[in-house]
Structure formats: structure tokens, C-alpha cells
Amino acid sequence: MNALTIDSLQFRWPNNTKPVLDLASFALAPGESVLLKGPSGIGKSTLLSAIAGVINIPANAVSVAGTDVGTLSGSARDRFRVDHLGLVFQVFNLLPWLNTLDNVLLPCRFSKRRRDRAGHDPQETARALLTDLGLGDPALMSAPASTLSVGQQQRVAAARALIGAPELILADEPTSALDEATKHQFVELLMRECAQAKAALLFVSHDTGLEQHFDRVVDFRDLNRGASA
């Protein structure tokens, strides 16, 4: 069972005749890491929204870990999202009023599946993840998220996406706010942890310098007929 299967997905925004997404087929094997590259404004984020079940898509088009996202109701998609997906955004991933550890544990608050998969003590798992990501300092873990640097915040966001081992990690330009050195360090750490959690990774970026880290690189313009049309 693939972590992600896309089969003839079409999506258009309301009052728009041209579809922004028009994908024939695309798949991620379990544990596979893919870099989805391409310039801004061609629907990469919309694709992630479709996979994450945020926008309404037709049935039988997107399936994540065997679940047809298009057939789920609104609240079922919210539950599905936290159960099977980890998300990392460009910036501002964290709730500023929670401390580092609590931010990492957020998915466990909302999902029993993630909680169960995070080991017998999710707090311990979260600490281990943070330590693996170079944030093992107890003072950092109890600090409010707003006091962390951008690089630290992105690593915390990665830990949050990974905790409870979801099948698929979606990362939307997570390195665009990082400098060159931390960028590579971040991707390496992310890859390592994904491998450990056996999570597939769909990494969206316009940064071609990161290609070397991934199993496969896909140009979104080749994939999405809607964008070029």
C-alpha cells in the first residue's frame, strides 16, 4: 500500500474555469522521499492542501495510506489529517504560547492513533525526537516556542510532524527561511528521522540545491498539466 496515490486529480477553484490541478497519476511508496520542485504559483501548495484534505476534491483521486481523502466528510478529514499526516510549513509552525515540548505533542492531543504510535510515553518520545534533532537542552524544551530561532522552530515543527509516526510527511518549503548551512542540516535531519519513522516524505521546494538528499525528484510542471495549460 502506497503512502500516497494520486490518480487523475482535477481541481479548480470556484468561479474559475481553468483547473489549477490536473494530475494524471503520482505515487509515493512507503518511506520514499520525493522532492517536488518548481517555481511559486503553479499549484504546489494547492496539491498539498488536496492531499491534506483541506480542499474539496472528487472521490477516487487521492488516497493516503489506503484512505480515499475525497470521500471523507469535513470533520473526518480533520481526524484523518492528524492520524496519517505530518505537516511542516514554511515559517511560523508553532503555537507561540506553548513551550517546545507541548508544540511537539500537539498531534497526540488530537489523535489517539498518533498518541498510541508515539510509544508508551509520548513525552519521552518527544524528548528523544528533539534530542535527535539537536534540541536536547531541557531549557529549550520548556521554553516558549516564540523564543526559538527560525532554524530551531523548523526542527521543532519537524519533530511535531514526525511524532506518532504518520505514514506521510508533507513539507511546504520548510527551508525557504533558513540559510544555506542550516538548510542542508535541516533536510538531512528530516530525512534521517523520516527513515527512522518509516514515513514517506513529500518535500515541496523551489530550491534545486537540495535535490541530492532525495530518493526521487519530480518537477511539478511535468506532473501538473493544469499549471502549464
Partner: peptide
């Protein structure tokens, strides 16, 4: 709004 989007990304429903 950002907070709410983050909460949504970790499984919070609009009802939550």
C-alpha cells in the same frame, strides 16, 4: 489566524 491554521494542521476541527 496562524494559530488556528496550525491547530487545524495537527487535527483540530473548526469545531475544536
Amino acid at each position: 489566524r496562524r494559530e488556528f491554521a496550525i491547530l487545524r494542521s495537527v487535527g483540530a476541527t473548526p469545531g475544536t
